[in-house]
Every structure is written in C-alpha cells, then in structure tokens.
C-alpha cells in the first residue's frame, strides 16, 4: 500500500480563527516565542500498490476540486509517503 499526503493551508490574506485561538493559548503555557500560528489540513490518501505518477496526478486533481477551496485555500503539498518508514518522505515511484 502507498500513501499520498496532501497539505492544504488557508491563503495568507484570509483570517485564520483556529490559528488565532492556538496562538492565544500558547503563551499561557510559557511558549512566548511564537508570534503567529496558522493551522492547515493534512490528508493521507491510501492506494493499493505503489504511488505512481497517475496516482499523484489523481491526488492533485482531488486536492484542487474537493480537498481545498481555491477561493480561500492553497494546496501547498502533494507527495508520496513511504509506508514502512512512517514519516519518511519518499520520491514518487514512477
């Protein structure tokens, strides 16, 4: 099984209420060094078999049509992730 990771962020000019809530709470825990927080979304799309170029292309298409709203969000990453290595990022297997 392969996995494609899609990352989506609100565009910089759109206010991020969730990020602001987190930013407001961090100093209460003593984290005073962070001047801003913006929160995004991470999707993990699993496929049978390897993550081919076709799979990546389909993931990009899904990211642009449904996983993000281009009016307010940017797709900031679409990448294959190797299954056995957890968070290790792998090159797409062509």
């Amino acid at each position: 099984m392969g996995t494609v990771v899609v990352d989506v962020m609100l565009k910089s000019e759109i206010l991020d209420p969730q990020g602001q809530a987190v930013a407001g709470a961090l100093p209460r825990l003593g984290f005073n060094q962070f001047t801003d927080v913006r929160q995004g979304k991470r999707f993990e799309l699993t496929v049978q078999g390897e993550v081919t170029d076709e799979v990546l292309a389909a993931a990009r298409s899904a990211a642009e049509t449904m996983l993000s709203n281009p009016v307010i969000e940017d797709v900031v990453g679409v990448r294959a992730e190797s299954n056995d290595a957890g968070s290790q990022v792998a090159e797409p297997l062509a």
Partner: peptide, 14 residues
C-alpha cells in the same frame, strides 16, 4: 459550488 463568489469561514470571535 462557485455559483457565488467568495467563501465562508468560522466567525472571527470563534
């Protein structure tokens, strides 16, 4: 649906 411009996000006061 992009029938109307813009988008809606959470209220700024949350």
């Amino acid at each position: 649906s992009h029938l109307l411009p813009g988008a809606m996000i959470q209220n700024d006061h949350r």
